[in-house]
Design a protein around this nucleic acid. Structure first.
Lengths: 328, 328
DNA sequence: CGGTCGCGGACAGGTCGTGTCCGCGATCGG
DNA sequence: CCGATCGCGGACACGACCTGTCCGCGACCG
C-alpha cells in the first residue's frame, strides 16, 4: 500500500510542523477516518517514533523525542537554513563536529532541489566567514566533494597547490576528511607514490571526472585525527598563551566561551585566560570588541602581534579625516 | 503493511548514506528479493523522490535531487552537527534565514533524543559567538521556545527586562519572531494593554508553564519585518560608513564578503567599502585580522571607535611584559 | 560474446489495511 | 455532577496490495 506509506510520511510531517493536532483534524488532513489515524499513529510508535497523546477535550497528538531521530521533513526555507548553517559550521572548521557537518551537508546537497540550491549559494555570502584569511578559507563545495569521494570510495583527481605555490596534479584514493586546528585535511593513499599523504583541503582543486571505485585499505592509524595532528606538526604556533583580563571572572566568562580557553580567577577584579595559540586571533578580537582591559603575559610573539595591530590602527587613524592622532 | 513502510524508510536512509548501491546489495540489506527492491525503488519514485539507476556491470541506484526535499535521515553525529549549525546561525541573527533557522531548530529539538541533546549543549559552547556582546546575546533555547509558542499559538508568560533594567511580568499572545539588524524581536499582542508590542528576545526570560491556546488575530502589518524595523527605530546608528582600503579590489572582495557592504574600485591599488553601520564592528575586525591598510572616510564616530580600540591595545601593550612601547 | 545488472509483465497466495460499529476511560467545562 | 469531546482498542468483512517466483528484454563492461 503505497498510499499508506505516503500517509505515514505526511503524518510525520504534520506532527513536526505543529505541536498539537487532534485526531479528527489529522483525519481530515489525511483524507481518512479517525480510526485509521489512530492506526497510523500506532504504526509510527511501532517504528520507534513516540507519539504522545492527551485525552479529553482539547486533547491531541504530539511527536516526542524517542530513542532515535525520526526522518526530518523540512520545508523549503528550513532546508535552506540548514544548508547555510552547515556550510558556515563546516567552513569554520569547528573541532568535534566539523566532519559530521560536512557529511550532513553532503547528504543534504545531494537531494536538494535546484531552486533551493540557488538560494543557498546566494545566502552563503552572508554567512560571516570570520577568522579566516582568504588564503586558507575552504570552499564548502570542495569539502562536500571530498567527503563524497571518501564515502563512495571513488578515486579522486585534483590539482594541489604546493606549499611553495607550485601546483601538481594528483590522483589518489581518498579515505577521510579530518578537521584539526581549524583546518581541513584529506587523508588519502597515493598509488603513484605508494604511500599515505595528508593534503590541506584549502589547497585542493578537484577536477570533476571522478575515477573508478577502489577498495579501501587499512588506514595508517586508528585515530586519524591524532595522526593528522602529528603529521602536520603545527610547530610554528604550538604554544599556549596567557592573558590577564582586568575584569571579574564572571564577566569574562560570559564573553569568552568555553572553546577559547580556560579562565581562572585572580583576585576580585581580574582573571587569567589560558588559551590555545590557534585561538589567539579570536582572543584579540574578543578583547577588542568587548573592551576588556588586558595584559599579555606569556608568548612574546603575541605582544608583537598586538603591537602590529595597534600600529595598523594608528596608521589608519593618521590617514583618516581630521584625526588629531592624540595618543591615550 | 508496516514492514513495507519501514523498509521504504530504510531504503531512503541507505540511499542517502551512500551514493551508489547495487540492487542485490540493497536486497540483502533489506532482507527481501531484488524484485521487491525494484518495486520499492518504483514506490520512491512515485512518491516524488527521483532515484537514478545505471544498468550494466557496476551499475546501481542513487538518489537524485527532485522537486521536493525527501525526508532527511540523519545519523546521530549528523543530527548534532545540524543542531549546532542551526544554533550558531540563529544566534548570529543572519538576516534572511534567521527565522527559518529557528523554525528548523525547533522542529529538530522537539524530536532530538536526549542523549544527543546533551552533546549539542556541550558543543554549543564551541560555536563562536562572535560579534555579540554578552548583553545582547540570545539563548537559542529561548528562541526556540518563543518560536514554538508562535507556531502553536500558545499564550506565553515571561519576565521582560525593561530598557532601564526593571523587569515586568507579561502574558502575551505571541505571533512572530522577526530578525532585524542582527537582533531578534518578538511581535505579540498584549491583551492586558490591548495592543501590539515588540519585545527584544534577548530581554525575555520565559516562565515555562505555557498558557492556553488562542486564536491568532490579524497581524499589525503585512510585512512584519518592516513593521519591526520601523518600530525599533534603529536611530542611534543608522548611518552608513565609508572606508578606503589600500588594497586592490579583488583582494578586498575575497576577504570582505557580500554581507558586509559594497566595494567599488578606486584606482589600481585601493578601493572603497560602503557598509551598513551595524557591520562596522565586523569591518574593524576584518581590517585588523587581515591587515589591510585602511582609512576611515565617513562617520567621525567610527574614527573615535578605532581610536578607542587603538588606545585599548596601547594600554594593554604598556602593561605587557617587556613592551618597549615603541610607536610605529 | 557472456556475465551482470536494471526493468517490468504475469501469476498465485495470503497478508494487511480500511471503514464501520461499538464500548471504555480520561479530561474539561458548565 | 453530568455531558461533550477525545483518545483507545476490539471485532468483523471486504478487498486491495504486497511478495516471491519465473520469465524475457535491453544495456553495459571486459
Amino acid at each position: 500500500m503505497l498510499e499508506t506509506s505516503a500517509r505515514l510520511l505526511r503524518l510525520l510531517s504534520l506532527l513536526q510542523a505543529h505541536r498539537d493536532w487532534s485526531g479528527p483534524e489529522l483525519a481530515e488532513r489525511l483524507g481518512v477516518t479517525p480510526r485509521t489515524v489512530r492506526r497510523d499513529v500506532d504504526r509510527l510508535r511501532e517504528l520507534g517514533y513516540p507519539v504522545n497523546a492527551t485525552p479529553g477535550t482539547g486533547g491531541g497528538y504530539q511527536l516526542g523525542a524517542g530513542a532515535e531521530l525520526p526522518p526530518l521533513l523540512l520545508d523549503d526555507e528550513e532546508a535552506v537554513a540548514v544548508a547555510v548553517g552547515l556550510r558556515a559550521a563546516a567552513g569554520q572548521g569547528v573541532e568535534g563536529i566539523g566532519e559530521s557537518s560536512v557529511r550532513a551537508l553532503a547528504k543534504l546537497e545531494q537531494v536538494l532541489p535546484k531552486r533551493l540550491r540557488r538560494r543557498v549559494g546566494a545566502l552563503n555570502a552572508y554567512t560571516v566567514p570570520m577568522l579566516r584569511t582568504p588564503r586558507d578559507r575552504v570552499d564548502p563545495a570542495v569539502l562536500t566533494e571530498l567527503a563524497n569521494a571518501c564515502r563512495d570510495a571513488e578515486r579522486l583527481r585534483f590539482a594541489y597547490r604546493d606549499h611553495g605555490g607550485a601546483t601538481t596534479r594528483r590522483t589518489v584514493e581518498p579515505h577521510r576528511l579530518v578537521c584539526s586546528e581549524r583546518r581541513w585535511y584529506l587523508v588519502a593513499w597515493d598509488p603513484d607514490r605508494a604511500g599515505w599523504r595528508t593534503f590541506r583541503a584549502d589547497r585542493i582543486t578537484p577536477t570533476p571526472p571522478h575515477g573508478p571505485r577502489f577498495t579501501p585499505r587499512e588506514p595508517p592509524a586508528e585515530d586519524l585525527a591524532a595522526y593528522v595532528a602529528k603529521g602536520v606538526s603545527t610547530a610554528a604556533y604550538a604554544t599556549e598563551a596567557t592573558i590577564r583580563l582586568h575584569v571579574p571572572l564572571a564577566e569574562a566568562a560570559a564573553a569568552v566561551g568555553a572553546a577559547d580557553g580556560t579562565l581562572t580567577a585572580e583576585g576580585e577584579r581580574s582573571c587569567l585566560l589560558r588559551t590555545g595559540a590557534h585561538s589567539l586571533d579570536l582572543m584579540v578580537v574578543h578583547v577588542s570588541m568587548i573592551g576588556f582591559e588586558f595584559e599579555v603575559l606569556d608568548p612574546p610573539e603575541l605582544v608583537d602581534r598586538v603591537r602590529a595591530l595597534r600600529d595598523l590602527l594608528s596608521r589608519g587613524l593618521d590617514r583618516s579625516a581630521g584625526a588629531p592622532a592624540a595618543d591615550s
